[in-house]
């Protein structure tokens, strides 16, 4: 409990730090909302026109005043209004978030369903040709950039078979689960592939270590079947590094998978924040990054709690 309270107390402090860094960083980059909207035509503006536009975009004050105002609104539950969308930042984020969450969950399911069995299989067939095969595939999976995989999948399906799930118009899972799944499965496989490769490698090596442990030998000598030894005794302990890896990967995916979202034309958080940066939509960048940071912290906390469940020897907060 103490541990949990301690972590929760640091949440706002970390978020405040993140918000300050993002606020300053996005303003340090050359160019502003005006040049993002007008391009080189911005040079045609008279000083008075420029002032009017700066006031419209809310960038007419020194940065610390802008930050103070933003912080003040934040404590009143207001993340500001996006100038691109003309709507509250939080509304825009919450509209995009379900897609990102779904994509992260699906690609994690793909990765774990493929990666854990493959890792266990390779570990139990250590140094045999089939182990080598799994390791080679995992190596290829880890080193293939996902834009290559995504484009290759799209190309093969559309040019080779003349089929492709509907792209461009995204259907949410609540509207039509089947269409939604057909739109999400390719991006999830694309993202999950490299992730599955990492899971395979880490579960293989963890499994190899554990199979040498005394308690596994004890279980074997007591006559437990090979299957029971592997799945009941060894695997739960081998899963701890997999949970760590999945936690890191999952929180990373919650920040949006920019490249995969671009390729498959999915309106997720990754594209939202990228477009917001390119269009210098300051309020939207700040709001989205803060939201992502919050999610990462929540996931990390959940991962820590999961350790304790998986391995009773781990007691959180005890020194």
């Amino acid at each position: 409990m103490n541990y949990l309270t301690g972590r929760l107390v640091t949440f706002p402090l970390v978020l405040l730090g993140v918000s300050l860094i993002v606020f300053i960083a996005i303003r340090l980059v050359p160019g502003d909302s005006i040049t993002a909207m007008l391009g080189t035509e911005a040079g045609l503006l008279t000083p008075k026109q420029r002032e009017a536009l700066a006031a419209y975009f809310g960038i007419d004050q020194p940065w610390f005043i802008q930050y103070w105002r933003w912080l003040y609104d934040l404590f009143h539950g207001d993340l500001g209004v996006s100038v691109t969308y003309g709507r509250p930042v939080l509304d825009v984020i919450l509209e995009r978030f379900p897609l990102t969450l779904e994509l992260a969950l699906l690609s994690m399911i793909v990765a774990l369903l493929v990666g854990v069995p493959a890792g266990v299989y390779a570990a139990t067939h250590n140094e045999q040709p089939s182990d080598l095969g799994v390791r080679i595939i995992a190596m290829v999976g880890q080193s293939t950039p996902n834009f290559v995989l995504g484009l290759v999948i799209i190309y093969i399906l559309s040019a080779g078979f003349g089929i492709l799930p509907v792209m461009g118009t995204f259907t949410s899972i609540w509207q039509d689960p089947l269409t939604n799944l057909s739109q999400m499965i390719l991006p999830a496989v694309t993202l999950g592939f490299a992730f599955a490769a990492s899971v395979t490698r880490i579960s293989r090596s963890a499994m190899l270590d554990i199979l040498k442990d005394d308690y596994v030998r004890t279980a074997r000598s007591k006559g437990a079947s090979s299957r029971a030894v592997i799945w009941r005794h060894a695997l739960p302990n081998a899963l701890i590094p997999v949970v760590t890896l999945s936690g890191i990967e999952f929180s990373y995916l919650l920040g949006g998978a920019v490249i995969v979202e671009q390729i498959f034309a999915l309106p997720g958080l990754g594209r939202l924040v990228l477009d917001a940066i390119l269009q210098r939509d300051y309020a939207l960048v700040q709001g989205t990054v803060l939201f992502i940071a919050f999610n990462v912290m929540v996931v990390n906390l959940l991962v820590d709690l999961a350790y304790a469940t998986l391995d009773p020897r781990i007691r959180l907060g005890e020194r």
């Binding site: 003349g162 089929i163 492709l164 799930p165 509907v166 089947l178 269409t179 799944l181 057909s182 499965i185 390719l186």
Partner: peptide, 8 residues
């Protein structure tokens, strides 16, 4: 792949 709506 569970593609329901193929090329409308």
């Amino acid at each position: 792949l569970g593609i329901a709506a193929v090329a409308a």
